[in-house]
Write a protein that binds this DNA or RNA. Structure first.
Lengths: 170, 170
DNA sequence: TCTTTCTTTCAATATATTTTGAAAGTTCAG
DNA sequence: CTGAACTTTCAAAATATATTGAAAGAAAGA
């Protein structure tokens, strides 16, 4: 397969993949394009290569920057802004974990705490099932919270080394 | 807070949460409703409690069954079908991991293998960046594959015990 | 300052997803 | 069988999300 074909296959697949993760297709495609570009690209490059409008490119690049996956790059002598993506996938993954934890888990935990304080007779089956389920989710969430924090702190080598060995040797 | 209010708050939040995960809001709400219901519910119960149409209830219950999160339950003497959800969140989580791995990672891995065989001169910067990035993603995916398989096999106690301790003590 | 180049915004439009509900299909007791 | 009770389907409608492109805004060189 030639590079051009491989590149467009990669972009298409990364886009499809992204939609399963609550990320819109275009954002994932821009990310894919930057991941395989040796040099930073301008908004214009992105528009041309993906056939999208200026507004769309601008908006999704901003969102990628917001997620910490893409950075603006100044190229001396150039007036335009350029963009480049972090290429180390372990760093990409930990950054995504960091952001999603902040946007989801950290918001869910206080809600669960509030819900666990429901009033009512514990001998009432409906009350018991509710509180038991919430407790179970709470416990799980708090462990997940700690585990994800540790993953964020961990370095790639440790993850790809000990953790996997630990898991697979079980 | 009274049970009714807590229940509807839980359903609303679980629904909001679900949309971040590529699951539609109604499906997540039905799941939430079944999670806190002591007894199995009929399609009619679900329709009434969530104010949704028959078709919608039917479709999303089917999808939940397809994901392995909900089961049909026969109640003797009743002609209707009833539905109940697995309440152990660790089991829910491993089931979701199992399914998403099947639907996403297992499809991505062969694509990456194909893409890693791109032709071209390695001294060409564009080719080098492409192959390096794909290789990096491949390595990560294969480790993630093994890690997730191990998590699926692991039991709750082990997860909530050793793994977390291991992570947080790092 | 003025002009050019580039970036951002946002209302309108296009596209995709979800929901409805009536009709068709199925099951089963009598 | 037959008919009542229940489930499934699916085209149309409603809703939500993404995209466009022109206009406004900002930055910087002359």
């Amino acid at each position: 397969m030639q590079l051009a074909e491989a590149k467009s296959k990669f972009i298409a697949n990364w886009g499809r993949f992204g939609t399963n993760w609550g990320i819109n297709r275009t954002m994932a495609q821009i990310h894919a394009l930057l991941l395989v570009s040796p040099d930073p690209l301008s908004a214009e490059d992105v528009m041309d290569q993906l056939n999208i409008s200026r507004g769309n490119a601008n908006m999704n690049l901003r969102e990628l920057i917001d997620w910490g996956l893409v950075q603006k790059v100044i190229i001396s002598g150039e007036r335009k802004e350029f963009f480049s993506a972090e290429k180390d996938i372990w760093k990409v993954a930990t950054q995504i974990i960091r952001e999603r934890k902040k946007r989801e888990l950290d918001l869910m935990i206080p809600v669960l705490k509030e819900l666990s304080e429901v009033e009512g007779d514990k001998r009432d089956k409906a009350v018991k099932t509710f509180t038991d389920t919430i407790q179970n989710i709470r416990k799980f969430s708090e462990q997940a919270d700690k585990t994800l924090d540790a993953m964020i702190r961990a370095d790639e080598h440790w993850f790809l080394g000990s953790l996997v060995k630990l898991f697979v040797s079980k």
